[in-house]
Amino acid sequence: MDMTAPLHRPLSGERRFFLLLSGSMVLAVLTGFAPSYYLRSVLPPPATLQPATPLVHLHGIVFSAWIALFMAQVAFVAAGRRDLHRATGTTGLLIVLTMIPLGIATALAQVARRSGPPMLDPHMWLAMPLASVLGFTVLFLMALALRHRPAAHKRLMVLGMAAMLSAAFGRIVFIPPFLGLLVIPNLYTLALAAWDVASLRRIHPATLWGGLFVLMTTVGPIFVWRSSAWLAFAHSIA
């Protein structure tokens, strides 16, 4: 046995890159939701913040569990423990299948609570959270279907997370809401594209098509939420 061999392999550039991307997502969630949820008993909450209902608490618990598991799974891969990554995959699937209807229910409940931006009709704003749920759901299911193709799987997982980060970045007080809601989530697509070009000399198809879907679900709502068709739909389901 070579006693001079290192006990731990150093992180490859790719593993370090995806670990940093995932860590920035967790940091965004913790920062964005600290005043309104995680630390609302310590930090002064926004003046327009509505009291948390049992549904809001359930939503927060389940989504927080997913964020923690997502970070853990990325860390497992970075550490070379794909066995743990696969072992926790079923738990992740169960959490996500709970998040989808829970996210829709919470979005609909926001209309009655008028807990969206005060300057917007809540039926208009409903387009944003529902589009986030759609983006996350579609990209996660695609990532699951391509779990045996690691390059596509990891990119779609990151983009699925990016699709749901508008709510987090939009709540960070030192980031203008426009940038947090519409621009910053799409920077993850640009980061992936830059990594693809540097490492593959091309943009991976999962980055291209997944990134376009993130763009559609983060920016698309502002082009439809004033339309009579959307408002009629929003009133009918809310």
Score class of each variant (00 low, 15 high):
L126A: 02
L126Q: 02
L126W: 03
L126F: 09
L126R: 03
L126K: 06
A127Y: 10
A127D: 09
A127K: 10
M128Y: 14
M128H: 15
M128E: 14
M128L: 14
P129R: 07
P129I: 05
P129Y: 08
P129K: 06
P129F: 05
P129E: 07
L130F: 10
L130S: 03
L130E: 09
A131T: 07
A131C: 06
A131K: 05
A131Q: 03
S132K: 05
S132H: 12
S132F: 07
V133W: 06
V133R: 01
V133T: 13
V133A: 12
V133Q: 08
L134A: 14
L134E: 03
L134V: 11
L134H: 02
G135K: 09
G135H: 00
F136S: 01
F136M: 07
F136N: 00
T137H: 00
T137P: 01
T137A: 14
V138I: 04
V138Y: 08
V138R: 05
V138A: 13
V138E: 04
V138S: 11
L139R: 00
L139W: 04
L139H: 00
F140V: 10
F140A: 09
F140C: 03
F140Q: 03
F140T: 08
F140Y: 15
L141M: 13
L141G: 06
L141I: 02
L141K: 06
L141F: 14
L141W: 09
M142L: 15
M142E: 14
M142K: 13
M142S: 15
M142T: 13
M142A: 15
A143I: 00
A143Q: 06
A143T: 06
L144F: 14
L144H: 15
L144E: 15
A145S: 13
A145F: 12
A145M: 12
A145C: 12
L146A: 12
L146Y: 12
R147M: 09
R147N: 07
R147C: 02
R147P: 05
R147T: 07
R147A: 03
H148V: 03
H148D: 12
H148W: 02
H148P: 05
R149I: 10
R149C: 10
P150M: 13
A151Y: 05
A151V: 07
A151W: 00
A151T: 07
A151D: 12
A152E: 11
A152V: 03
A152Q: 11
H153M: 03
H153G: 01
H153L: 01
H153Y: 04
K154T: 09
K154L: 11
R155F: 00
R155A: 00
R155Q: 05
L156S: 04
L156H: 09
M157G: 08
M157W: 01
M157L: 10
V158W: 01
V158P: 04
V158Q: 04
L159T: 02
L159E: 03
L159H: 02
G160E: 03
G160W: 01
G160I: 00
M161R: 04
M161C: 14
M161V: 15
M161E: 08
A162T: 06
A162S: 14
A162I: 02
A162C: 08
A162N: 09
A162K: 06
A163W: 01
A163Y: 00
A163D: 01
M164V: 10
M164S: 15
M164A: 15
M164G: 11
M164P: 07
L165A: 08
L165N: 10
L165H: 10
L165D: 02
S166V: 02
S166L: 05
S166D: 10
S166M: 08
S166Y: 08
A167I: 04
A167C: 08
A167R: 04
